[in-house]
Amino acid sequence: MATDSEQARDRVWGLYPWHGQSEVERELVHPEDLERLKFFWPYCRVLERLGDAAERGFIVLRYGLDTFRVQPDLFQPVTPPAFDFGDEVCLRKDPARTGVIVDIYWHYQQGQPFFFIRSGRRRISKRYQAEELLPRPHVSAEHLSLGG
């Protein structure tokens, strides 16, 4: 049986730099997911690839609680982020300050993800690098509904 850390290493994360500005790009998205993806705007967000969709030629990408079916053409794998959506973290320099990961973005110049957290009901505007955060026990998915 695989451990949690082994399972995490097996997960595939990546970028889907989709702008939706052209008809060609819009055809890369499953028609039922197009409007949600236009509103969501995946560019610079780190998404998890869950696998192939039931519909031939599409893969399923996850961001938080949302999933989207897209063609794999634009998917670019990246190193898995140190934290997942819903992970409870504390600040390395101030462990009494805690929060929940609500957004994971990609910093192209640094070639690594950065994180936004929510503390209580307030989303913190500062972006954090993985080395600025420490893990805490996992929290329930209901906290993710406050993200965004």
Score class of each variant (00 low, 15 high):
F40Q: 02
F40A: 06
F40R: 00
F40K: 02
F40H: 13
W41P: 00
W41L: 10
P42Q: 08
P42R: 11
Y43V: 04
Y43M: 05
C44L: 10
C44S: 13
R45G: 12
R45C: 07
R45F: 09
V46Q: 03
V46I: 13
V46Y: 01
L47Q: 03
L47S: 08
L47Y: 05
E48C: 14
E48Y: 09
R49Y: 09
R49D: 14
R49L: 15
L50C: 15
L50W: 11
G51W: 09
G51I: 10
G51H: 11
G51E: 09
G51D: 12
D52A: 14
D52K: 13
D52V: 09
D52R: 14
A53R: 10
A53M: 10
A54D: 08
A54Y: 09
A54E: 15
A54Q: 13
E55K: 06
E55L: 03
E55F: 05
R56A: 08
R56M: 05
R56F: 05
G57E: 07
G57Q: 03
G57H: 06
F58T: 06
I59L: 09
I59N: 10
I59D: 08
V60K: 10
L61F: 10
L61N: 02
L61S: 10
R62L: 02
R62A: 12
Y63K: 02
G64D: 02
L65N: 11
L65M: 13
L65A: 12
L65Q: 13
D66G: 04
T67M: 00
T67F: 00
F68G: 04
F68H: 01
R69C: 07
R69L: 01
R69E: 02
R69Q: 08
R69D: 01
R69W: 02
V70E: 03
V70W: 05
Q71D: 02
Q71V: 03
Q71E: 02
Q71P: 00
Q71S: 01
P72A: 15
P72C: 11
D73V: 00
D73P: 02
D73Q: 13
L74A: 03
L74Y: 01
L74S: 04
Q76I: 15
Q76E: 14
Q76N: 06
P77D: 06
P77Q: 12
P77C: 14
V78N: 12
V78R: 08
T79N: 13
T79Q: 15
T79M: 07
T79V: 07
P80Q: 12
P81S: 07
P81Q: 11
F83T: 01
F83C: 07
F83E: 03
F83H: 01
F83P: 00
F83L: 04
D84E: 11
D84S: 12
D84L: 06
D84N: 09
F85A: 06
F85M: 11
F85K: 07
G86K: 05
G86F: 11
G86V: 13
G86T: 08
D87K: 02
D87T: 04
E88S: 14
E88H: 03
E88G: 09
V89M: 05
V89Q: 06
V89P: 00
V89D: 06
C90P: 01
C90K: 08
C90R: 12
L91Y: 01
L91F: 07
L91N: 09
L91T: 05
L91R: 15
R92W: 02
R92H: 08
